[in-house]
Simulated scan of single mutants.
Amino acid sequence: MSIRTSAYITFTGNAEEALTFYHSVFGGNLEIDKYGDMPDTEFPFEPEPEWVAHGDLTGPVNISGGDGGDQPLKSHVYSFLVYSDSIEEGRALLEKLSANGGEEAMAYEEAPWGDHYGQVRDRFGVLWAVEANEN
């Protein structure tokens, strides 16, 4: 069996900006299809032509998403956990994710279990946790 997983985020009109930002942080391959480029299809809502119908970032981090939501993404009921091979790489990821309007949610420091751990909420409202262990 060959499978892969991807978190899917429904954005509120800024999916292209968010997915492009995540691509700049994590690298990988980004593909974006917009509603305006699709053949005539009926949707359960009226999408703007420039909205993302489906975006797919694949690589070290897999994220899929599109526009069509009306709820803010800021929540405490989910987060993305990224594991890093080094403390410095983890710190750099948190700095990139918090750039341009993000905010620290938990300081990046040694955790009781011995790894380094911290959290940031990016400018789109998504909570990211980063853990690094150099053992």
Rank of each mutant, 00 (worst) to 15 (best):
D85L: 07
T12K: 15
G66D: 03
M38K: 10
N29K: 14
I87G: 04
G68H: 06
Y117V: 05
Y83I: 15
Q119H: 15
F26Y: 03
F26L: 00
W128K: 04
F124C: 11
F21P: 03
A129H: 12
V126Q: 04
H116Y: 13
G13H: 04
S6W: 06
L73R: 07
D85M: 09
V82P: 00
K96E: 10
Q119L: 15
I87D: 11
P39N: 02
G101T: 03
A107D: 13
P44R: 05
G27H: 03
L127K: 09
P49A: 06
I3L: 15
E103H: 14
G36W: 06
F26R: 04
V130L: 07
Y22V: 01
I87F: 09
L30H: 06
G118I: 05
N135V: 11
H116K: 05
F45W: 09
G69P: 01
P44G: 01
F21E: 10
G28N: 08
F124Q: 05
S98I: 07
K34Q: 09
E109R: 13
D56P: 05
F43V: 04
P112I: 15
H76M: 11
R121S: 05
N62W: 03
P44N: 01
H23S: 11
P49G: 07
F43S: 03
T58L: 04
F80L: 08
K96F: 07
F26K: 04
A53I: 08
W51E: 02
T20R: 14
E131L: 12
F26T: 05
V61A: 08
Q71G: 00
V52F: 01
S64M: 12
D67Q: 06
I3K: 11
K96H: 14
A92K: 15
S98G: 14
E31D: 11
F21N: 05
Q71D: 10
N100H: 14
A107Q: 12
Y35M: 03
E104Q: 10
E17M: 10
G36A: 02
L19Y: 00
D122R: 05
W128Y: 01
S6V: 06
E31Y: 07
G114Y: 09
N135R: 12
E95V: 10
V77D: 05
A105M: 13
G68I: 00
T12F: 08
P60N: 10
W51I: 02
L93P: 00
F80S: 00
A111T: 12
Y83Q: 14
H23E: 10
G66S: 01
G68M: 03
P39Y: 02
M1V: 15
S98L: 03
G27A: 02
L94Q: 01
G65D: 00
A92D: 13
I9H: 00
E109V: 12
K74Q: 14
L93G: 06
A99H: 09
R91K: 11
A15K: 04
Y108H: 10
D85G: 11
R4Q: 12
E16D: 15
T20S: 13
T12I: 10
G69H: 06
R91G: 06
T41C: 12
Y108S: 14
H116E: 08
